[in-house]
Design a protein around this nucleic acid. Structure first.
Lengths: 242, 242
DNA sequence: CGACGCTTTGAGGAGATTCAAGACACGTGG
DNA sequence: CCACGTGTCTTGAATCTCCTCAAAGCGTCG
């Protein structure tokens, strides 16, 4: 069976810059001019690798820059004083990581690889430099950051819905993000465990499992461990729209 | 009894600019140089008034700029397709409103006055201009925006805790924000209803009421309708730290 | 092949919701 | 100034959703 782990096809290309990266319409370059992308390309630090379970940055460590995921996937975790942990978000290729450290210059969250991954990073001291040279780029960063705010608002809204609605929304959201990256939106492999999904959605992992199998019984999806196939996308979305 | 509605003492001063505003160390100017504050002052549109219940901006309307609250208080609401509403945040003087529209140029949220309020606003087309002239200022906006992200993460974390923990946290958080603005942190008047608190915390308004009176029975607070007095702040904070 | 971790499934229990009804506060008009 | 009406707040009882605890199945990797 095909493995749906996302891998950038250009990782084998040694001369990749932001200009010829295949994620350019998802990542920071999206919407920038040629010359701006070229300038960005000169400042970016490429080909950083992490294996499954390895930390990209720790909560409490100084902010060293923004990170753009090239391939693989990661999870963004937050911890409070009581040791309670929250899986803030799953990160897919083309998505930006690190905003949690920009405000105070200290990371509030910990980023951990869910599988082998490759990322680029834009050093902190170069962000201000960019802001000076390219207002459009700095405005774009601001937009990206605000976008994260919007998606957090959606997350809070979701936390008010029932467990079934949350799981339906999670499946559809992941599906959309796979599609945006050129992968099948109907059948894919989840790189995260039930435990991690549950943590992210605010429900017990047993509940995640129960509901996925309930959806299977209703012929909305087909699930076997980490492999997932959407059968009736429309009804699945009606599910949490109504 | 003193009314705890926050009012900027300088509203009667006709020549207020960012340079002599008494909220300068809470609002956008915080951390900026004299000349930067002066430049900001020239771009800002002042003395906009809204009465209780009036809308500052609507979800779906085009982004027209960032708003800094001078006096009074507001609530930031979000609505999903199903008509479900979420009270995203309460806004106090010195806080920035409008990030929800910066990413897509269309507001995702609706901002509504909780009482008579006064605000300044920085028009959208001037934000890019500012970014060009003052990298520090644009970087500051980015920081502010990321800060919002951090506080949303905290909000999601809070949504995992029990109802009692949420109410305790809400009281302490409001208390801290009053203190930061120079008002008593131990006794104040809530400008929002139980319904609005419940919506914000993700619990029924009956539960808010029950728990506040439970806290009163435990001699942690004293509550009478909208008037609130903190008796034992330490134990109240232990409450959700342990 | 065995051990470990992840997933599934079941039963009982706790916390919060919903519905309902009464108390209180505030503003309006007589 | 008081009576009235409306909206907010409080309190109670029944219900429900989801959690916790427990144990068994499945897969994977050394």
């Amino acid at each position: 069976m095909t493995d749906f782990i996302i891998t950038s096809s250009s990782t084998t290309n040694t001369a990749v810059t932001c200009t010829n990266c295949n994620l350019d319409n998802l990542c920071i370059p999206k919407g920038l001019s040629h010359s701006e992308v070229a300038e960005l390309g000169l400042l970016v630090n490429r080909n950083n690798i992490r294996q499954k379970g390895e930390v990209i940055y720790h909560a409490g460590s100084p902010f060293r820059g923004l990170i753009a995921l090239r391939s693989g996937s990661a999870k963004l975790m937050s911890f409070d004083q009581t040791g309670n942990e929250l899986l803030v978000d799953f990160i897919l290729p083309g998505e930006i990581l690190g905003f949690d450290g920009l405000s105070s210059q200290i990371h509030n969250c910990t980023a951990i690889a869910l599988e082998t991954l490759n990322y680029c990073y834009l050093p902190a001291h170069k962000i201000e430099q960019l802001a000076a040279n390219s207002p459009a780029l700095s405005y774009m960063l601001l937009q990206r950051s605000c976008n994260q705010f919007d998606s957090q608002v959606n997350k809070v809204m979701l936390s008010r819905r029932t467990a079934e609605e949350r799981v339906a929304c999670f499946i559809l959201h992941i599906s959309d993000r796979f599609q945006l990256r050129g992968y099948s939106e109907m059948e894919f492999r989840l790189s995260m465990s039930r435990e991690e999904i549950g943590n992210h959605l605010g429900i017990a992992h047993e509940t995640v499992s129960r509901i996925m199998h309930l959806f299977q019984a209703r012929k909305l999806i087909q699930v076997k461990s980490k492999q997932l196939k959407i059968i009736n996308k429309k009804e699945l979305s009606n599910f949490y729209t109504t």
